[in-house]
Design a protein around this nucleic acid. Sequence first.
DNA 1: TGACAACGTGCGTTAAAACGCACAAATGGC
DNA 2: GCCATTTGTGCGTTTTAACGCACGTTGTCA
Lengths: 185, 185
Amino acid sequence: MVTVTQQLGNRLRELRQGRGWSLDQAAEATQVSKAMLGQIERGESSPTLATLWKIATGFRVSFTWLVSGLSFNPGLLEKGERLQHLSTTQDLELVVRFPFDPAVGFEWVELTLAPGAQSMSDAHEPGVTEHLLVIQGVLELQLDGQWHRYETGDTVRFDANQPHGYRNPGPDLLVFEDVIHYRGV
Amino acid sequence: MVTVTQQLGNRLRELRQGRGWSLDQAAEATQVSKAMLGQIERGESSPTLATLWKIATGFRVSFTWLVSGLSFNPGLLEKGERLQHLSTTQDLELVVRFPFDPAVGFEWVELTLAPGAQSMSDAHEPGVTEHLLVIQGVLELQLDGQWHRYETGDTVRFDANQPHGYRNPGPDLLVFEDVIHYRGV
DNA sequence: TGACAACGTGCGTTAAAACGCACAAATGGC
DNA sequence: GCCATTTGTGCGTTTTAACGCACGTTGTCA
């Protein structure tokens, strides 16, 4: 598990050593104490926006360049390590397979609906696209006020910027995967 | 004088209100307390990298998008407001006309050398370019081990990724402007 | 118009970023 | 081999980010 602060630390250390600067020199150039710079390089501190800006300025590097490329990198996932049961009612279960990660721009959830269960959703913001894959049972999806039927193995993609809903007509359990992509990149 | 934190605050408030979210909703989505979100929006707080990341994640927006476009904006400069005398020896003076700003990628300094004074500089990092304009006196510039002569009104641009030096052959005072551009954008 | 809920801000507390200083290891002459 | 300097880390203090709670305001519906 490599955290964002560690990534930034590595990047900063490479930048500094690539120029042959000592922590003292970097501290003078950036007006950030060398103790703090050392902690940031070691990933022991989560710098504020102000200090990030001072670092970028001191190194004559654009702020965007300094922080670009940072990504939430969970590394290899242990089996089921990050499963999160967000909401559990009697007839609906939502499991987060992969939580949202700004680096990839989507989240992956799995929904399980008991026979007869129904889940309605209001319109999301523009630019949100859902990708569904039915794993088990039968899914009925409402779009434009009309219900569409999908069976095991079927896939469907739709713009979530509209009211929509899922239901399980039964008689079996319904399980489907949902990869939700958000626009902001 | 619009600070970086204020810019971020405005951006965040637009993002939140554009979605019709309350501070409570945003706090639940981002796992950042609404008091903190309020302070950030008002530009009263300089959030850490970790909270910036949580905000981007909660809003389903890439981190880069959230912080891109931030720029150091000093607004209209009062006459001589930001003059900084960085080093003052007997025969050399350096005045910072415009400190480095990541938004534009350069800094503007003015150097004054007494007659006979000389200043040698090691190679900078690759991608650094200096632009000189002689205001007063005669400048001699060393490049590739060879001295070149420039008089009042002359201009010269060179790659600073090499040892170079300035000297004033006299007999008058030498004054020249130096716009130093750095690559990282 | 009064009651109620929702919204944003202020306040006191806690956790942690940031600083200055000093120490230990590494480096480099002479 | 020894001394002087430099480089990075650890420590105690100060500053401030971040939190939970409560208050004043605003708008809405009965």
